[in-house]
Amino acid sequence: MVVGKFLSPVGYFFQNLHPSWINKLASVPAGFGHGGAAPLTDVGVQLRGGRALADGHQLNYALYVANGPRLGLEGMEGLDLDVEGSSTNRDGERVWGGRVGWLPRPGLELGASLTRGDVVLDPGEMGIGMAEPTRAYRVEGVDVAWQASRAVSLRGEWIRQRVGDAPMSLAPDGATWRAWYVQGAYRFGADRWETVLRVGDSLSPHGESTFQQTALGLNYLFRPGTQLKLSWEINDSDNAEAEADRVLLQLAHGF
């Protein structure tokens, strides 16, 4: 049981893999960061646990009720979803949901996430004096992780957030944020070296968050919590800013 501000239990990447000493690339997958498709943090109550079932199966769960994201405006009409939790629930609406993971055997995990609830647009200065209607807020996600062999680990995730239409609103149309990635990693050289390939795609109402990405990485593990990462990102987008390719070098250390 967790009360307060927590990493959103919906989806897999952000809650379990984003610390830089864990993430195998120097950047987060397309759409899994700020302004992306995956909820990041929230404020509320969460219940987590697991069960070892017969035959070596394992089940784990995380259920939550929380304040949910905040919906704002970007520009005149574009909806902007702030996926970081806040302790003041400005829109007065809550969301609930969670994730269930199933391990049919050690090394293979299949997960599914879902959130339901309502949000109300906070139009800021633009909507002075206007009452905004509630809109449906929905999240669905699936994730898979497979340790294919001692050296090869594969994983992938798909997640989508949707905000419903509200005809009587300042910004009547709803919006969808969607992202996925698949990643393969191969360890070699006495388990010290690792190569990583990640392919992902992010879709958002905003051009700068709509892009495809292929990322390649080479890592050296000094200690289990310390790694040096060299990552190369090839980004493809209609938006000039999001299109830029990047080379990143990161030394990550965890405690």
């Binding site: 893999l17 992780a145 593990l221 289990p224 919590g225 965890g254």
Partner: peptide, 15 residues
């Protein structure tokens, strides 16, 4: 062995 290297590199029990 089954669970503690699912997300991150295995931490040394001695650490």
């Amino acid at each position: 062995a089954d669970n503690c290297a699912r997300c991150h590199a295995m931490r040394d029990p001695k650490s």
